[in-house]
Design a protein around this nucleic acid. Structure first.
Lengths: 270, 270
DNA sequence: GTCTGTGAAGGGCTTCACAGCT
DNA sequence: AGCTGTGAAGCCCTTCACAGAC
């Protein structure tokens, strides 16, 4: 009852989280204006994953990693990983692999994570409080700098290091705090108004946890996390798996763990 | 400071959430074994969105909707919507549109949501508690039936309607509760062990909020929600928007609000 | 005339397989 | 010999445009 996994095959390197913010070495790769274009959307999403895995490897003082290993630890195929990285230009050494610290810095630079992003969070209910206390938040390049709500009972309450302020101060505070990213975890009815305020305050990036469709100007980037959609897609795919018979073809969603060489055991120990 | 949006164009129908679980009419469309195949992954994800919007429309006693309207309210193009629906067979009436209740039932059936799914949640920390109290959870076909944790201080505590049980009871309880979907919101270190237990208990669908890569058998479907990845992708796309100049080309992520007829005002009022 | 359903064209992403560097 | 970087092939998805039903 207490033993952990033992029947597990492909997931090499056993990356289990936990990064500390001390890794970037010398290479100060600034996102050089032209790299931003031409990186496929799907690749951008995976780069963020590689970045996290590289952080874990750096913490373990792993200095070098091959595409095969990094791919396995990230849940993708090695060819896909190399293709993804190729959009950033040459990153590794042929016959050897990638230098962990260098590649980490390279990706962070490309994603614009060499500078810290200030985040404001609006809606300090159950979910908002949980988000405000989420440690991985700060650990991956984001600094929570403001909490806002409209409920008088919540104003002035401390959550983590911050004190909840009234949402009427939002526009003003965003400017003072130099916020660049807004997170909305209010009830559905308030979402659009909050989004409008964030836009008015000059924010260009909004993450919403409401299923409501946000209506914002073209130059504002939004992203939604809808829990119910995730679960519905999940259960459908689960049903399909059983239907199709539990043979090959791997899964499907965000990560496609179709390892290139199926079930060949450890990839870390050659 | 108190007025809401006024410069907003395309998002017609202004769907703002809130569904109640009283809609399905006569058509008991069972997922008929062959429909499961051949539905593109991207389509499945959007079907879940359409389903939610249709729920909202049903609540408003809207009986009929055109592809143009439903598409606008869902943040997609009308052609894409029609193509998506076509995978379920004929659903509408030419020259008229779709009957809301009928289409809702049709999609729900196709996604396997005509039966309720029992969900167990493991890890009742900040995030876990927020999830446990999330109302939209139950409102969209999922019933939370069990809460588990390993921290002695949390065992026996009530969250919502449920009492937190020890994670050692997990396998046994999953069988008794007839759970079909597991949600993991534990610290990263515990995620793999919890996943192993869920698999052992026969669950085929796992939703994880940890960035850790899950290693599970092929017939188990997993899905991850990684907050940091969402924010990193968001901020990158935001930077790219500014770089490219705030012209056309709309956004990019989950929803692509590229309305077919750009900025033509209300679609709901003909 | 209106609006759905769909073949066909087009674009983007993935996979393959190998050239090229160490 | 080993491993990266990359053209090319293939696949999936999106978009177009129109035939067909009402």
């Amino acid at each position: 009852m207490t033993e952990t996994h033992q029947t597990h095959g492909p997931a090499a390197l056993d990356v289990t989280g936990v990064v500390d913010p001390s890794s970037a070495p010398s290479a100060t790769d600034q996102a050089s204006l032209s790299e931003l274009r031409d990186i496929p959307q799907a690749t951008v999403t995976r780069l963020a994953t590689y970045l996290r895995v590289l952080g874990v490897l750096a913490d373990r003082d792993t200095t070098t990693v091959s595409s095969e290993e990094l791919a396995a630890a990230s849940g993708v195929g090695s060819a896909k990983l190399r293709k993804d990285l190729s959009f950033l230009g040459p990153n590794g050494v042929r016959g050897v692999g990638y230098e962990v610290a260098r590649l980490h810095a390279r990706i962070a630079g490309a994603l614009g994570l060499d500078r810290v992003h200030n985040v404001v969070l609006v809606g300090v209910g159950n979910l908002g409080q949980a988000l405000a206390r989420y440690p991985g938040f700060a650990r991956r390049g984001f600094s929570l700098v403001g909490l806002f709500d409209s409920d008088p009972e919540r104003i002035g309450v401390s959550v983590g290091d911050l004190v909840v302020r009234h949402v009427d101060e939002l526009e003003q505070a965003c400017l003072e705090l130099e916020a660049t990213l807004g997170v909305i975890s209010t009830p559905d009815e308030a979402v659009q108004e909050v989004a409008d305020r964030l836009v008015r305050a000059g924010l260009r990036c909004i993450l919403s946890f409401s299923p409501t469709l946000l209506d914002v100007p073209d130059n504002v980037e939004t992203r939604q996390v809808d829990l119910a959609v995730e679960m519905q897609v999940l259960s459908f795919n689960g049903a399909r798996n059983i239907e199709n018979g539990p043979s090959s073809s791997a899964s499907s969603s965000s990560n496609s763990p179709s390892s290139t060489s199926p079930r060949n055991g450890s990839v870390i120990a050659p």
